[in-house]
Amino acid sequence: MSDMMIRIEKVCKTYHVKSRAEPVRALDNVTNHIDRGEVVVIIGPSGSGKSTLLRSLNGLQEIDSGAIFIDGVSVTDKKTNLNLLRSQVGMVFQHFNLYQHKTAFENIVLPQTVVLKRSRAEAEAIANDLLNKVGIPDLGGNYPSMLSGGQQQRVAIARSLAMKPKVMLFDEATSALDPETVGGVLELMRGLAADGMTMAVVTHEMGFAREAADRVIFMDAGAIIEENTPDQFFDNPQSERAQDFLRQIL
């Protein structure tokens, strides 16, 4: 048996939207797992439940039934210290969500001192290292509003990495970026993957999926329709819906 980092068991989630008579089935009995060091890319049309699935992995999204385990610890168990668990799971958002009232540097320092109780000096040293690592060593003093989307996303990635996470979750991390800055952020993500980080990535970047993923999961209508290695998935999709989807986007 392989070494599972994330275990997803029969997860269901239904939204009740006022404008629609029928409740929306966002996650329909999803079962899967992600191994330690594995990079899994989740793709699918919008509204297919991929973001919901990703956000349920760190409990940001509550689920109706089923169970999720991160490194053996249940996300859904009421007795779990969810804050401790979340500190070990990095999350990168589509809209970066940097703390607007803090500089880039302070964005990376704050969670370390508040959550991990690291000393200010240690947190600052780590923040400096990470600003270097994400390629913006000189921009630490800038407020988020003074940075481009790509730069903000680099800061957001650095902020997550500062927590020394076991897993990184990327929720359409490049969807809100200008085309010319997408490449740099993807490059950074590829680097993380190469370093052996366990990653779950929701994205529309098929190039990234093909190159960096160990496995591709295709979702539609809240269910996993197909999963395969990227080469197999892109060259020889099995299901009709995956074939349709790939025809439309490629």
Partner: peptide, 14 residues
């Protein structure tokens, strides 16, 4: 914006 709260909770802040 709710993203500020999400970004805080997802790094493990109470």
């Amino acid at each position: 914006p709710t993203g500020q709260s999400e970004a805080s909770r997802s790094v493990g802040m109470t």
